[in-house]
Design a protein around this nucleic acid. Structure first.
Length: 333
DNA sequence: CGTTCCAA
DNA sequence: TTGGAACGG
């Protein structure tokens, strides 16, 4: 998915404890929903569904994660994607094809009883469609979570909101927000900290990446970081074959970005992509103020509408409303 | 992913 | 009490 800068950013990630995170956080909504939909599945790949067969994985993810956020003093603002730019069309089309193929392979794997393959293909067939967006927004509204509609990329809008000081950091798994200028990015903000990767269980801790520290450490300007992104490939351009983050870093540090592109992709003009990261469409028409959670409304939607257990929803709401607006010990100092 | 269950 | 397995919808 996101721009593959992991290998050069690794040294500038610092573990961060939950105690250091209270405040307003700009959540990359599409990234979060995609994550829920890919991961909250049964071993054969079937997502959580109500009795009518409507997918509910995202609703489960939102309910429990936000309940935990609230209990820890993290006030999320969900930022949704707007209209994709023309630059992204090729990527969108490519992803659609991959999803469709995966959907077929999933069905085939289920038929022949290959559970591991079914799970893998099901994940690859994940799509954050209009229904997922609509139902997520409905639940967030009932929870009193502010929602921001980005004019373009949600990641750009989230970065902008942090840069303006309206939010403390962006929550996303992708590094794209750094290219969009997010001063601080927090990854792996999950409660359990445990993840099963290929049968192995590993502990994943929340980590913080400060853009200024990363640029200083790599001796780069933000424009140069974007240049590396362009070389390895972004949602807006395919990248140069055989160039990863480390090679890209070397090329850019030697000042050979333009020359390398001219050599490998003579017909490609990187200026519009650079422009997209430096001056993306964003809006100041938003509010990060949280509303009051409507416990009855949430129960009506989830329990009556989507067959959630009332007991579990009640429990999630408990941590929610009790701690909402309550000062954490940390914030007194 | 996050919660709950259950064996040790 | 703990942590891996099963469940949730």
């Amino acid at each position: 998915m996101g721009v593959a800068l992991r290998d050069i950013i690794a040294d500038y990630k610092t573990p961060v404890s939950w105690e250091a995170l209270p405040g307003i956080a700009a959540v990359d909504a599409n990234n979060t929903l995609y994550q829920f939909l890919t991961i909250i599945r049964q071993p054969d790949g079937t997502p959580l569904m109500d009795r009518q067969g409507r997918v509910t994985s995202h609703l489960s993810g939102i309910l429990f994660r936000i309940s935990n956020f609230m209990a820890k003093g993290i006030k999320p603002v969900f930022v949704f994607d707007g209209k994709p730019t023309q630059l992204k069309q090729a990527t969108i089309e490519e992803r659609r094809k991959l999803r469709d193929t995966a959907g077929e392979k999933w069905r085939e794997a289920v038929e022949r009883g290959d559970e591991a393959e079914a799970y893998k293909q099901a994940r690859s067939s994940t799509r954050v469609d209009d229904t997922i967006i609509r139902t997520s927004r409905e639940l967030l509204g009932l929870m009193g979570i502010p929602v921001v509609q980005a004019p373009g990329e949600g990641e750009a809008q989230a970065a902008f909101m942090v840069a303006r000081g309206d939010c403390l950091y962006v929550i996303s798994q992708d590094y794209d927000t750094l290219l969009f200028g997010a001063p601080t990015l927090v990854r792996n903000l999950t409660v359990s900290g445990k993840r099963k990767i290929r049968g192995r269980q590993i502990t994943v801790n929340p980590e913080r990446i400060v853009l200024a520290e990363t640029l200083a450490g790599l001796k780069l300007t933000r424009e140069q970081l974007i240049e590396i992104g362009i070389l390895v490939g972004t949602d807006f351009n395919p990248g140069v074959e055989g160039v990863g983050a480390k090679t890209g870093l070397k090329i850019v540090q030697k000042g050979e970005f333009a020359a390398k592109l001219k050599e490998k992709q003579p017909d490609f003009d990187p200026a519009p992509v650079m422009e997209m990261f430096l001056k993306p469409p964003v809006t100041t028409e938003y509010s990060v103020a949280a509303g009051h959670p409507d416990a009855e409304g949430i129960k009506k939607m989830l329990c009556d509408g989507y067959d959630f257990s009332e007991e579990r929803v009640d429990k999630a709401l408990e941590g929610f409303s009790v701690k909402a607006g309550q000062k954490t010990l940390e914030s007194w100092f």
